[in-house]
C-alpha cells in the first residue's frame, strides 16, 4: 500500500509514466509553519500535484517555480514568510516561515 504521505513514490510513478516531474521539500521552518521539515509536494509538467508544503498558502507559488525548475533543470531554494501585503499572495497567513527546495526528478 502506498501511504498518503509517500509523495516520493507518487513522483517516481509519474516519472515512470514518462512525465517530467519536480519535487518540492520543506527543508527548514520557523514559527508556526503548518507542515514540518521533510513535508513534500510533487508537481508534474502536465499539472498534476500531490502532497503539500504548507497549509495550502504557498502551493501555487511552488508549482510556478516547479515549472521553471523542470524547464531549466536547475534546483531552487525558496524562502517564504509572512510579509504584510505579500501575505495574501504567497506568504504564510499563519505567520510562519519556511524554506522549500524545488528540484527536478531525474
Amino acid at each position: 500500500m502506498i501511504d498518503a504521505e509517500d509523495i516520493l513514490s507518487v513522483a517516481a510513478a509519474w516519472h515512470q509514466d514518462g512525465e517530467q516531474v519536480a519535487v518540492a521539500t520543506v527543508t527548514e521552518t520557523w514559527g508556526s509553519s503548518p507542515r514540518p521539515a521533510g513535508s513534500r509536494m510533487a508537481i508534474s509538467k502536465s499539472g498534476k500535484m500531490a502532497g503539500s508544503v504548507s497549509g495550502g498558502c504557498i502551493e501555487g507559488a511552488v508549482a510556478d517555480v516547479a515549472g521553471q525548475v523542470m524547464a531549466t533543470g536547475t534546483p531552487k531554494l525558496l524562502d517564504f514568510g509572512v510579509t504584510n501585503e505579500m501575505a495574501w499572495e504567497v506568504g504564510l497567513a499563519c505567520g510562519g516561515k519556511v524554506k522549500v527546495f524545488v528540484e527536478p526528478l531525474t
Binding site: 516520493l8 513514490s9 513522483a11 517516481a12 516519472h15 515512470q16 519535487v23 528540484e103 527536478p104 526528478l105 531525474t106
Partner: peptide, 11 residues
C-alpha cells in the same frame, strides 16, 4: 532528486 534514490529509499 534521482529516481534511483527513491527506489533505494523504498527498499
Amino acid at each position: 532528486m534521482k529516481t534511483a534514490t527513491i527506489i533505494a529509499l523504498n527498499q
